[in-house]
């Protein structure tokens, strides 16, 4: 059995319901204000709200897993240390993504070396109990494999485009030093490349009318 398009459709719908599909941004201005006064819960809420963005922002620097965790914690160190200097707290996602990238560069510099991670990123999903689940898992693994084969600029852009909380094109433009107007076309080109990846092709063909 190869692929049942209905399962894929169901998966697409589930993914669209995923938080990254579009829940509202937390009230960063309020959280930052509370955190500045030392409110621990507000600080922890900032970690919760920004963890996924930070983790994925530093996903394509070739960091080992330990170094990536170190940079992750370091980014939040920087956030709490600089809380008083953040002028536009409502733009915190852009600020922290920039900070995370800088911290990754700093770590590489402090080590005086480049470590290319060859640790597998794949994690076995547990208990694929039905055929449907098996198909879902196959689609996800194929998609992730295809993603990892993309050029770095595509991976960086797509990670930021799937970031949670959402980043605006303006924020992404600043982060990647990419003109605002070229984000749309580059996104298109990268998604097309993803679609045409050999790993993913059977799913596409199966899924199209």
């Amino acid at each position: 059995m190869r692929l049942a398009p209905p399962s894929t459709l169901r998966l697409m719908r589930a993914a669209a319901d995923h938080p990254a599909g579009g829940s509202a941004r937390p009230d960063f201005a309020e959280l930052v204000k509370l955190a500045r006064d030392g409110d621990l819960q507000a600080k922890e809420a900032l970690v919760e709200a920004l963890q996924r963005l930070v983790w994925h922002t530093i996903g394509d620097f070739g960091l080992s897993r330990d170094d990536r965790q170190d940079v992750f914690a370091g980014t939040f160190c920087r956030l709490f240390e600089r809380l008083h200097t953040i002028r536009e707290p409502e733009r915190l996602p852009g600020w922290i993504a920039t900070t995370a990238r800088n911290e990754a560069h700093t770590l590489l510099r402090a080590r005086g070396r480049v470590v290319v991670s060859d640790e597998p990123l794949e994690r076995e999903d547990s208990e694929p109990s039905t055929d449907d689940r098996l198909v879902e898992r196959e689609v996800r693994v194929a998609l992730h494999t295809a993603f990892r084969a993309l050029p770095r600029n595509c991976r960086e852009l797509l990670r930021l485009l799937t970031a949670m909380p959402r980043l605006s094109y303006e924020e992404i433009s600043e982060l990647l030093a990419m003109p605002h107007g070229s984000i749309g076309p580059t996104r298109q080109r990268c998604l097309d490349r993803l679609r045409s990846a050999p790993e993913f092709r059977p799913f596409i063909e199966g899924g199209q009318p």
Binding site: A14, L143, F147, T162
Partner: peptide
């Protein structure tokens, strides 16, 4: 993109 997000 939504599927990629979930996959990541």
């Amino acid at each position: 993109l939504a599927l990629l997000s979930e996959s990541l």
